[in-house]
Design a protein around this nucleic acid. Structure first.
Length: 158
DNA sequence: GCCAACGTTGGC
DNA sequence: GCCAACGTTGGC
């Protein structure tokens, strides 16, 4: 199986790329996803798949970094934690419904890539980000990935 | 199974 | 803050 590419969105006021970098080992659980299409995409993620980190709900919204999957989908225990931010009463340890993965920060875009730039790029008009803007975990094709990396000039985080 | 009503997301 | 687009819920 060859490597696949993805994009995840986060509101930086809730959880930013810098927050991920600040974590021990620069990795964290990607929990709180409560959308079936997004969950299904997470369940397809394999260790080593690379993930664009996108900041939404800011001006301008933009891709700010690159992360990598370090743990494949497993039950999101925050779903049945009534104290968590997104509890789902239908979820339980026996019937988790919702899943999360672990991702680790890899590189920061020296030039973050704004949604405007993405929309303006002739090779990126079919990106899920453009077509289905609300999907918070989405696939990225290898071609799209290469264009974004070309524009973003990622610098490895040490 | 359909569809109206409602809730949420996210760009602007 | 507004609104369009989409997802979910629930009555029938």
């Amino acid at each position: 199986m060859s490597k696949n590419y993805w994009l995840v969105k986060s509101e930086p006021s809730a959880y930013s790329f810098d927050d991920l970098i600040s974590e021990e080992d620069m990795s964290a659980e990607w929990d709180g996803v409560r959308n079936y299409a997004a969950r299904n995409n997470m369940q397809k993620m394999k260790v080593g798949d690379q993930v664009l980190f996108y900041h939404s709900m800011i001006v301008p919204p933009k891709v700010v970094g690159i992360s990598v999957v370090v743990k494949e989908a497993y039950p999101d225990n925050t779903a049945w934690d009534t104290e968590s931010e997104h509890p789902d009463p239908k979820s339980s340890p026996d019937n988790p419904i919702w899943y999360m993965v672990d991702i680790k920060a890899q590189a920061r875009m020296a030039c973050s890539v704004s949604l405007n730039e993405i929309k303006a790029h002739p090779g990126l008009t079919e990106m899920v980000l453009v077509k289905l803007s609300r999907l918070s975990v989405q696939p990225v094709t290898e071609t799209e990935w290469n264009y974004i990396v070309e524009m973003g000039h990622p610098e490895k985080i040490t």
